[in-house]
Design a protein around this nucleic acid. Sequence first.
DNA 1: GGTAGACCTGGACGC
DNA 2: GCGTCCAGGTCTACC
Length: 326
Amino acid sequence: MATRMKLKTPGDYLLRRDVCSYGYFLLAPNHWDPRSGVFSRVCTLGDGPALVEVAQEKAGGELAVKVGRALLKEEKKELTVQLTRMLRLDEDASTLREFHASDPRFAGIGRGRLFRSPTLFEDVIKTVTSCNVTWPNTVNMNRRICEVLGDAVEVKGGKRHGFPSATKLARTRPATLRARCRVGYRDARIVELAKLFTLPKSRGGIDVGWMEDPATPDEPLYEALIDLPGIGPYAAANILQLLGRYHRLPCDTESVRHGKAVLGMTGSSAQIMKKIHEHFAPMGRHAFRSYWFELWEFYEKKHGPSWTWERDSTGKMFTAAELNKK
DNA sequence: GGTAGACCTGGACGC
DNA sequence: GCGTCCAGGTCTACC
């Protein structure tokens, strides 16, 4: 028996805009259907995996959540926590207003929330799978990780898989990850990260509560992230933004392309990255959102609104060759 | 502290 | 269709 729930949203919430706001909405197990405007994925809950579908009838209205099976009371709470994190339903309205005041370009369309994963663990692994690869490869890695290791639920016409838990990935052999999920040299790093997420803090494990706590100072958090296996300056800055801290820019080759093509910057890659940091520095704690939505606007000019993008055809949209086309 | 090279996969390109 | 080159961020060794 299916479960139906309603989720309250902030008054300005727009599902299609706020889901299709960061590339992770295109990565398995997430799925956005451009035709129906329904977001779905398999969520891992206390009693096992469940297919979850989220729709919104009108802008600013509540979210209608349909779950493929009956949920225990505790699972309903668990799912609410996961959806709230993923969809940024608890985004502080005052900081959103502050962002729009400092960068009015995005006030009119209300952009400000950035889609993320239901757990920090999934965000960290997704970040690792996006390093040193082209976007189509990141898409494939996430699809394979879910298909090979994620819990599955039966749906009409096949199966849908969730994202594997830290416990499951911690028990996976690196060779399996490499051979079946095609993660390459990231294999051991992913398993090591998963182990750190399963260990208690007293034994050197990751203190997720401390990392998620808005009261935790930025710099010690950045230092803790950069100490993790497979996490360098780019990945640490990206995880910071996924944790809601937007002061630091995760600069990569895509930033350099943007600096050259859109901002008219010249010089070596290192010089352009420095210029990009300087360019967005006046935005202070909103720097990343200002940078990101400018980049996102460039993608949308090329390919139409992000909520019309099909997951299975976006791979080629974000290759260097395609993005460098005039 | 700064730099060079290895890591691995898949897209692009030439034949 | 096949082979080769190259892009991509992190890590380690070395200066």
